[in-house]
Write a protein that binds this DNA or RNA. Structure first.
Lengths: 138, 138
DNA sequence: ATACAATTCATACTTTAGTATGAGTGCTAA
DNA sequence: TTAGCACTCATACTAAAGTATGAATTGTAT
């Protein structure tokens, strides 16, 4: 936030300087007015694009970012969340077990708990619910 | 495309007119140069924002639209695609059967064919693959 | 120190998913 | 008209997924 304010302030100062510079350079006849106007136009066009990109980027981030708070609210443990992510990527219990170096029965226990906590009947439904709650990406 | 060219041409003409207008209004001393510059700056700022928004919007659209051609390439039939969508929404075979008014064994047949065509081992993997291929939404 | 939550694992079981095979129906293009 | 495709359904099977229960271990907070 401080960074934003600093950048904004620097930008305003730079623009005011530019105003003065362009004014005097035109009045003294050292620069053609078309060139000055063209430069200013280009500058503000670029500024508009950059600011717009930043704003949209921020919106996009907040809409795809995972809701960490919701995970806590649901009471999902760290390990359970890991398993949930692997389920969403399409792995079987056995594959998840191998990836996380535990037994398949452990994964089954985790999956059962995940289904209860997400109020889902199946793993496919759990994926859907997790997506809606913005708990997992996509 | 024609529309874009037309708008662009109109924009260029308008700007050239503006250039001439601002030049003479400054030379005749009827308008202060600060105001002219400010107007131009504001104008190009807005143009920058609008153009950027359009470009980004177009990118967003093409990234969320379903790839109808890919569905054909994979050889997925209309019914199979319906079943795929229901799978992705988290339904069981029995539930899909009830929703589409057919027997569960019919759905099983469809699911088997879908898995072969998508080169998936499980329905969860099929969901993942279908998403990557932009065949289904989300 | 102990109560608690998280993680791990096992067994035994039920349910769902997925495979393989065969077959009937209806539509459509050659 | 018939060959082919999409859709339907059934049976019989194997493989996963999911449930229930119990238990051991470990780190942590009171």
């Amino acid at each position: 936030m401080r960074k934003t304010i600093f950048i904004f302030a620097a930008l305003v100062i730079a623009l005011l300087s530019l105003f003065q510079l362009s004014k005097y350079s035109v009045l003294t006849g050292s620069t053609k007015i078309e060139i000055v106007i063209a430069c200013i136009a280009l500058l503000f066009f670029v500024i508009g694009v950059i600011i717009n990109k930043r704003v949209l980027h921020r919106q996009k981030e907040t809409s795809t970012v995972i809701d960490q708070q919701k995970i806590e609210e649901l009471g999902l443990s760290k390990r359970e969340y890991e398993v949930l992510c692997e389920i969403a990527s399409g792995l079987s219990n056995k594959e998840i077990a191998q990836k996380l170096f535990v037994s398949e029965s452990t994964i089954k226990t985790h999956v059962s708990n995940i289904l209860v906590k997400l109020d889902a009947k199946r793993r496919t439904q759990a994926i859907q619910i997790a997506k809606e709650l913005r708990i997992i990406i996509q």
